[in-house]
Nucleic acid binder design. Structure first.
Lengths: 214, 214, 214, 214
DNA sequence: TCCTAAGCGAGACGGTACGTCTAGTCTTTAT
DNA sequence: ATAAAGACTAGACGTACCGTCTCGCTTAGGA
């Protein structure tokens, strides 16, 4: 789950009156994902989501500012399902997470929503921030966990300078996530075991070059 | 230029009737790019583009099936401006093209449009094909040119198996384009000389690893 | 007024939700009449009516199925202004109502609209019924009132057979309304006091012939 | 036939060049009538008529100013089919022509077109004149022929004052045509033998009253 | 025989209105 | 105060016709 997500626009004052239905929240996010599957991003409408969730449109607008915000929350929950399984070696761990990520991008709701909200975010600062907070930064944990595990195994040296370490982690994250997304959605080619292996070889080879030669 | 682009839906038979205005085509594509700058993808409307181009809405719909197709053609022209400058070494060439690509993604019309049409293409097969034809496949030339030039310089061995060569080129393309896009649009961090240098080191290091070790 | 007109498409069930604005109704019908005056039937557009009434197009379409239905309701209100003044004799009463009807047909909104909706109704059954209900049947009251008054004065015998009485009333109605409309709109000649007098003489003479001779 | 109709906009100067196709004229008018049957007045479009006639739209616009003019010409030909059969008595003649007229109004092309062009003519002077010339005035011949025949039979006295005679003929024309049209199209009731008989009785009775009493 | 002016089919053009759809807001009654 | 219902303003959608135009081609009569 998206714990401590503090998403949505929390009501400022806690006063009297009928409390918000928590079931509505769940129903709306689930309905949003189903609508993404059925209709795709463009044809998804908030009125339709409201109907599917058995909720009034006003209830929806009371909680989210618009389509983009709603969809970010709906798909963020899916990204949290990603995890880094311990397969015994760094290479195997990377291959595993690449394939997991590819599987996530294979689901129609993620596929259509992810690029769309990123596109929206290019002209919408707050949305960009929401995406960073809810999705991007949260998933960098995978890189960090992988590195720690590899260092524990002795597969990677411990980088002393924290700034260099951070920049390297960012680079790995952009290269990995970017390559998988580009392969899957732009080139529209399959991300299979063979490709994951080839990519991992490239990444690890490059990583060695970055750490040895300044 | 987008030579021989055979885009749009060309009238099948060349019979009688007033011929289509080529000036209209130019005006529409230019107006589309300007509208992308001013309004972004979501707020761009075909009616507005038509007005800007001094053209009737019907003229627009006669040539393009919808917003996505139009925008793909409009931005495809920009991608054709990319070129691979000869900077003397493979590393310098890669850095150069990475920075060029980053500059292209820095332009608001490309920034907002590219992700949007890719998002659309996830639920629209013909559009996906159009993107591949007009943008993706066309730009792979940069990878191929770079490799040939490096082989001529003796920086890279000549790969004998054409299939392996093709797969490697595809991998390089996805990794490079994907990393730049992810860095620029998803992570929303600058793609500057320093990052380009670090990325190039990673890529060349990885490339060496892929070619030496199967 | 068009009391109890039960026109428009009344919402079937009375449940929750914001009630329809009655002010909008009034404004729309008035705007329709004004648009008929300014533009005539053909150039009248529902978008323009909506603008004049200060109302969104959807509000208009929520209440009426199309241009014809709207215009029927708008002019039906005018027909209800007709009344049968007591001028002391049957002949004078008839002349009076003929001139009133002619004056109504002289108003541009009625002039242009009446024939147009009748023309539409020839290929539109529901519309034909609406015209009958809202206009034709309602105005037959003038014939019935005139007859009752004449019978009270002793100018006309009381017809015992209700069916014969009904057929005669229908005939009088068709002849009178038809003659005035044809004179005013088809022949495009004035319906003045002189013509009204001549027509009344013809009608009353014919009426005597119908009642005496079977 | 509509002989000497001098309708359409004849080319002013007779110079060289390819002459207009007379087959096109025939085909267009026939196509117009068929389109009226199939689509009714409102949904009839000039483009569709052109297609049906196997003719280019420009050919159509070269000859007629618009939809109304075209339709007037197309239906005027049908009105010329009316004639006054000699049935031996004035009453029988009137009943005959009333039923003929009713039959004409029963045809869908006439039914939908007649009221429509009259409606148009209320805001279009030249069109009104065209209708008068092509249809109204042409059919008054039926009244005049009927009177002459009745006078020859001795059923009607010869009116000495030509002005009075003219006004009476106009009145009869408006009353008859108006009553039939109103019965058939507005009241939407059948014009059958029984009605025609009742109407004729009324008309002849009234006629006697007008001629005897000033 | 060629010339030339108009007619012709085809179809693109700038416009305008259509009737529908969605966005977000507002107004009602019920909880 | 929140909920469901649904009416409200605003405006884009994609389509259909309008009446005009621009093509290349045909069809005559006059030179």
């Amino acid at each position: 789950m998206v714990a401590g997500m503090q998403s949505r626009d929390t009501p400022p004052t806690r006063a009297g009156g009928r409390p918000r239905s928590t079931e509505a929240d769940t129903a709306i996010l689930e309905a949003t994902r189903q609508a993404l599957v059925d209709l795709g991003w463009t044809k998804l409408t908030l009125g339709d989501v409201a109907t599917r969730a058995g909720v009034a449109k006003t209830t929806l607008y009371r909680r989210w500012a618009g389509k983009s915000e709603l969809v970010v929350d709906a798909v963020a929950e899916l990204f949290d399902e990603l995890e880094l399984p311990d397969r015994g070696s760094l290479a195997a761990d990377i291959e595993g997470v690449v394939l997991q990520f590819a599987a996530l991008l294979g689901r129609p709701e993620t596929r259509t929503a992810l690029m769309a909200v990123v596109a929206e975010s290019t002209t919408d600062g707050p949305l960009r921030e929401r995406i960073r907070t809810s999705i991007v930064e949260r998933q960098k944990r995978l890189v960090l966990e992988g590195r720690e595990r590899a260092q524990a195994r002795g597969e990677l040296p411990v980088e002393s300078d924290p700034e260099t370490a951070g920049r390297t982690a960012d680079l790995i994250f952009d290269v990995t996530a970017g390559a998988v997304v580009h392969r899957a959605l732009v080139s529209a080619e399959p991300v299979d075991v063979e490709w994951a292996h080839r990519f991992t070889t490239l990444l690890l080879g490059g990583l060695a070059a970055t750490t040895t030669a300044p």
